[in-house]
């Protein structure tokens, strides 16, 4: 379905002394879940936001399915790419159903088709449509709100999904549940996904491949297993072996298992 290609991508914010993202190149294959991993301020969110053109490029090119995103209409592009952020940003004056229906309605879906899709998505994320459809975001828990945020992002069947620390603000138990659901949904929909996090364990649980970033540059792009076995730099070595790496190996295996079950 979709691939995302970064080719020498460089970003410099106005007035900044150095590049926020410097000459980044890698490819995210069709249906792949790629995690951008690094400490805060390393440029991972900035890199993510170049895909839907929320951040302009200083140099290089981002392509979706071979199409230069800068050649596409920005608004049309964003409607075809799902977007989930840590702060969720559910529209407070709309109901859950209206939030989920935002992109379908922007794309001119019929009322019936949209309503059917909303119910289908609410069930997919484990919220009973009858109970949740007409609720306001203020009456959702943190975990429920982010589930709705994910449903909103995938509502119009986007060709790619961009997630910026989506589970960073929910508690550990809910986070694990959400991660498990995300793996299931992404495998089910086969949506190419870029996922930003600074959480090593999260990266290892979710990623097909991990892009390790540090001060705007890519340190290594590799499968989780490979990061352990052949860390490209000292930095990557320290990163993967910080904390409990036995635990991480355990989750890699759990994830492979989940993938297998979904397929």
């Amino acid at each position: 379905m979709s691939s995302i290609t970064f080719d020498g991508v460089t970003v410099r914010y106005p007035g900044a002394e150095s590049d926020a993202v410097e000459n980044v190149s890698f490819e995210c294959d069709d249906g792949e879940l790629v995690v951008l991993l690094g400490p805060s301020g390393c440029g991972k969110s900035t890199l993510l936001r170049t895909v839907n053109r929320l951040v302009p490029l200083a140099a290089g090119r981002v392509r979706i399915d071979g199409n230069d995103v800068n050649a596409l209409d920005a608004v049309e592009l964003r409607r075809s790419v799902g977007y989930v952020i840590q702060a969720v940003g559910l529209f407070a004056h709309m109901t859950v159903a209206q939030n989920v229906a935002v992109v379908p309605s922007l794309r001119g879906w019929s009322r019936d088709e949209t309503a059917r899709r909303v119910d289908e998505l609410l069930r997919m994320i484990g919220l009973d449509p009858a109970a949740y459809r007409d609720r306001r975001p203020s009456r959702l828990s943190g975990g429920e709100a982010q589930r709705v945020g994910v449903a909103r992002a995938i509502a119009a069947r986007p060709r790619a999904l961009l997630m910026d620390e989506p589970f960073g603000a929910v508690d550990a138990i809910v986070r694990t549940a959400l991660q498990r659901e995300l793996v299931r949904i992404v495998a089910e929909l086969h949506t190419t996904t870029l996922f930003v996090t600074h959480d090593m364990d999260e990266a290892f649980r979710l990623a097909d491949r991990i892009v390790v970033m540090r001060s705007g540059r890519v340190e290594q792009v590799a499968r989780p297993q490979e990061l352990f076995e052949r860390p490209a730099t000292e930095y990557v070595r320290d990163l993967v072996h910080a904390g409990d790496d036995v635990y991480r190996r355990y989750f890699m295996r759990g994830r492979a298992l989940l993938r297998g079950l979904a397929e």
Binding site: N52, L54, V75, E76, L77, R78, R79, S80, Y83, I85, A87, V88, G89, L90, F91, A92, V102, V103, L106, G149, R152, A153, L162
Partner: peptide, 23 residues
């Protein structure tokens, strides 16, 4: 207005006028 909602609105593909009128 909550900046997260404006960011989400833009990221989901609302035009500047739609962000203003709808959010």
């Amino acid at each position: 207005v909550d900046p997260a909602q404006v960011d989400a609105a833009r990221g989901l593909g609302m035009s500047p006028l739609q962000v203003l009128l709808r959010v």
